[in-house]
Write a protein that binds this DNA or RNA. Structure first.
Length: 428
RNA sequence: GGAUGGGUGCCCGAGUUGGCCAAAGGGAGCGGACUGUAAAUCCGCCGCGUUUCGCUUCGAAGGUUCGAAUCCUUCCCCAUCCA
């Protein structure tokens, strides 16, 4: 039975930290986990879906948790769900099954690894270096009959059906495909495999993973029912983060907040954090920064406009962790000067266009700019005064922009909240 | 395989006695005002196009009609029940 995280006082520094940072939702056996973490280095794992080319802020909470545990001497395994991605996750409703090639998964995994490496170490040559694995390596070679005989026998449908994730589906008469039903076995098998090959005893994941993770815990226990020394396995879940206005954290409609600097510049990343709701800042500081708790408390004790200090700290620290000190400083400086009215555009990347002159609408819709999504929308935005060139509002969508508008540092184009620095270079 | 109910714009969801439908309403998003680069609130936009008009949309393809998201045919997909 899941232990509640509220009424237990942890002994191990790792669990203590995890709990005080607000990273723990529920755990299979909190005391035993605590003991294990106290007794010595624990190898733990988290799974990631490699269907995207970059991780995003939604994944960041789990990465911070890995970082925290690793800093306490424990060993992370990042498992990329190559096999599962090859089948396609059926839980998304209208989601087409994306069949990814091995190469794509390979590339994505590589990218993930680079991003993980910002937060956890892989190659330090020490015991608790993190490891990145692909579950396709052990899931794909499985034979159905063997799998059923060796693994399937340890699962009873009765029990699976009793689990909340499945029961909700059944009670709600929401179709549950056999494939989906099997996911639990695969994930449980992952855990078993890691337990055998790497001595992994702890799985962590989002709250929605609970059923799958507990299945792994039980599988390991059953497989080792007769040897006394083995069979220790645990899982714990992280809270599902929502914003103060009740939405899921990190994924705006407009696009995910990518960790990849290529997909989202440090400046934009900083902007994401600095624009958080006041009510969320304390929680976010605990999770996404490593500031001491008492500092966080005093920072967020402020009210009103003074909250900006805390929010700015959050943005800076979060950006620093991902993109480094220098980039964070730059982003902060650019952000403050830009929005504070100063006008330092130096952090805004310069876009060079091989054009001598261009109409404003066309410029705003240009593939390299894409300030708005269509000319029609652009015209409307221009009408409502959303566009400024070199700090001068332009109301005419067909205003001709020429090289004369480019100063020494280029043309400063402001389109709503977005800003661009543009240089028009004469056509060849 | 059989029966029934469905497939509407980013999402949810009206609309099916054919025109007043580029399609109600809500959410998200975007722009503006107000602010603290926040929240709340208010205003505007929210298919595309230099636009008192034109073009392309309501699962797909055909058809009926002066005119179809709305009617007919075939097909595809989804859900529920039966086998």
């Amino acid at each position: 039975m899941p232990s509640s995280s509220t009424d237990y006082t942890p002994q191990s520094p790792a669990l203590k930290a995890l709990m005080s940072r607000g990273l723990l939702e529920q755990a299979s056996d909190l005391q035993a986990i605590d003991q294990a973490l106290l007794a010595g280095p624990v190898t733990f794992y988290l799974g990631y879906d490699p269907t995207a080319t970059s991780l995003h802020v939604g994944n960041l909470l789990t990465i911070m948790a890995m970082r925290l545990l690793q800093s306490h001497g424990h060993k992370p395994i990042c498992v990329v769900g190559g096999a599962t991605a090859m089948v396609g996750d059926p839980s998304g409703k209208t989601e087409m099954r994306k069949l990814l090639s091995r190469e794509q998964i390979q590339t994505n995994s590589q990218r993930f690894r680079e991003q993980f490496a910002r937060f956890i170490h892989f190659d330090r040559g020490v015991e608790n270096d993190a490891v990145l694995l692909n579950n396709a390596d052990w899931l794909l070679p499985l034979h159905y009959i063997d799998f059923l005989r060796d693994i399937g026998r340890h699962f009873t449908v009765n029990r699976m059906v009793a689990m909340k994730t499945y029961r909700d589906r059944l009670d709600g008469e929401i179709p549950l495909s056999f494939l989906e039903f099997n996911y639990q076995l695969f994930q449980a098998y992952d855990f078993l495999h890691l337990n055998r090959e790497y001595g992994c005893t702890l799985q962590m994941g989002g709250a929605d993973q609970w059923g799958n993770m507990i299945a792994g815990v039980e599988l390991i226990r059953r497989m080792h029912a007769h040897d006394d020394q083995q069979g220790q396995a645990f899982c714990l879940t992280f809270p599902l983060l929502t914003t103060a206005d009740g939405r899921k954290m990190g994924k705006s409609e407009r696009g995910a907040i990518w960790l990849s600097g290529e997909r989202l510049s440090p400046f934009e990343y900083y902007q994401f954090w600095v624009n958080r709701d006041d009510r969320d800042v304390a929680k976010l500081l605990r999770i996404y920064t490593e500031l001491p708790l008492d500092e966080i408390e005093s920072l967020t004790a402020a009210e009103g406009a003074a909250m900006r200090t805390a929010t700015r700290k959050l943005a800076f620290e979060a950006t620093r962790l991902l993109h480094g000190e220098e980039a964070a400083c730059q982003a902060q400086k650019a952000s403050e000067q830009a929005y504070g009215g100063g006008g330092d555009w130096s952090a805004v990347p310069e876009v060079v266009l091989d054009i001598a002159e261009i109409k404003l609408v066309d410029l705003l819709v240009h593939p390299d700019i894409q300030a708005f999504k269509s000319k029609r929308a652009t015209r409307q935005r221009v009408d409502s005064g959303a566009v400024k060139i070199n700090d001068t509002p332009i109301a005419d969508p067909y205003h001709l922009v020429t090289r004369a508008d480019c100063g020494a540092s280029g043309l400063r184009l402001k389109a709503g909240k977005k800003r661009f620095r543009i240089r028009l270079s004469q056509g060849a």
